[in-house]
Amino acid sequence: MTTMNMVKALNSALDVMMERDPNVLTFGEDVGYFGGVFRVTEGLQARYGRERCFDTPIAEGGIVAAAIGMGAHGLRPVVEIQFADYIYPAFDQIVSEAARLRYRSAGQFNAPITIRSPYGGGIFGGQVHSQSPEGLFTHVAGLKTVVPSNPYDAKGLLISAIEDDDPVIFLEPKRLYNGPFDGHHDRAVRAWAGRAEAEVPDGYYRVPLGKAAIVRAGEAVTVLAYGTMVHVAMAAAEEAQIDAEIIDLRTLIPLDIETIEASVRRTGRCVIVHEATRTSGFGAELIALVQEHCFYHLEAPIERVTGWDTPYPHAFEWEYFPGPARVIQALRRVMGDAT
């Protein structure tokens, strides 16, 4: 066990997999010698050589296309898209190619690739360093979408993603890289050290894709969250003193519907929290699924707390970012007279 922040944990996952499997390699913009703008690939080029960890031209579509070709030929490339906001030039390669390759070739070819990308807000990144595009990928048949919320999960999920035979979009909440963040931007920055989730095994372990975690058990209301919003939801529940059950989804596709269903059937109430814009966001899918699976157990309308349907505004970071105050309001609304 070593205390790791999320950056170190992700680096450790890559290190472990590159050590174990010579077919694992990683590349992207500034990923090689420099080790990535967030340092996730630091030291890997020195340890494994330039052919296994290298810089690429600024061509996200080319990066993903090369990964698809490599993956089809037996490698397990892990590519970094420097910010999720820059992933759109690769959208065609992800949606039309990686996602459908196994299907359209009737299993002759597949793309066992992992596309890592820092995502989400809370760092004053403005429109092009703050977006949460997960809903664009969960809408696509053939992709898996993963969002870790802490160092332990980040390492275990990334190892699972690399070993997975399907293309995985692995979104790393950049505001969580160096410490947990509960949305209280006016308070002191916290570090991961001292928290149980930051105690990370040095070697190989997996956190399975498709399995959610109940990070806070409760009876009054179920909160569905992922990434940074897990921490915001935790703060909201504590501050409002509501006995919320908070589920960290960890993987959006495939989704752990069993854990969600069991919880909402017990609590009868549900609040969904995500940073991404609201309309057609993944929260809409979650609401649909919860009402399909739990309608007769619901005692209040399902609430969702999300980013607003605007581009991510630089000056209005904290009005945009769904912080604990908005989550508390939603919790109180669904609790109604029950609180």
């Binding site: 579509g61 080319g62 990964a67 070709g69 490599m70």
Partner: peptide, 20 residues
Amino acid sequence: FSISGNLGTQFSQAVGWAMA
């Protein structure tokens, strides 16, 4: 290789295969 039907997308994938 499986033909996509989208134009151009596989040109750059071939480079990835060759790199492998």
